[in-house]
């Protein structure tokens, strides 16, 4: 599913949600519920950062158009109409990504896919904050996943074998 409105260029103030929006685009077809909540996280975070400057306001208005169009298209999906169900959906998806990457890591199979899975898992745990405060377990998973993605990426870039 392609989201309705095309977004304008990302304002530099919103750089911190750039990868969440990219994850949303990557999941529009694969898992629209994940795509919806990644955009919702970017929306709420963007509004906290800057909803006054013309460039940011224009971007947020378009992002809101996308979210409203997605909600309309997914209207009968429980994960969208009931956020408690949505929260479980996103958390399960994030955990699935984390476990896949962790299994590859333990099997010492280091590759771009497992790095991306670690990193995407950490982005999806960020997204869980739209539902409320993160659990300590999720905070730890996010920290570990982001560190692992960075560490393994740097090792492969330098031609070293991750320990």
């Amino acid at each position: 599913m392609a989201a309705a409105a095309v977004l304008p260029t990302l304002p530099p103030q919103f750089k911190s949600v750039q990868h969440h929006l990219r994850t949303a685009q990557e999941h529009d077809k694969r898992d629209p519920v994940v795509a919806y909540y990644c955009r919702l996280y970017a929306m709420q975070t963007g509004m906290k950062i800057d909803s006054k400057s013309p460039e940011c306001r224009k971007f947020l208005l378009k992002l809101m158009d996308q979210l409203e169009a997605m909600k309309k298209q997914l209207g009968d999906c429980e994960s969208i109409t009931q956020e408690i169900v949505g929260s479980a959906h996103v958390e399960n998806y994030a955990l699935k990504m984390f476990l896949y990457a962790d299994n590859e890591d333990r099997a010492e199979r280091f590759h771009k896919n497992m790095i991306k899975s670690f990193y995407t898992a950490s982005l999806l745990i960020d997204t869980l904050s739209v539902f409320g405060e993160l659990s300590e377990e999720n905070v730890q998973h996010r920290k570990y996943a982001r560190w692992k993605a960075t560490y393994i990426h740097n090792c492969l870039k330098n031609g070293e074998i991750p320990q």
Partner: peptide, 27 residues
Amino acid sequence: TGSIGASVASTEQDDLSQRLARLRDQV
């Protein structure tokens, strides 16, 4: 013009907040 611009901005900001609340069925 400054004050007009500011009031437009705050109206749109309120509009965004209201749309977000409606989106999350929090109205």
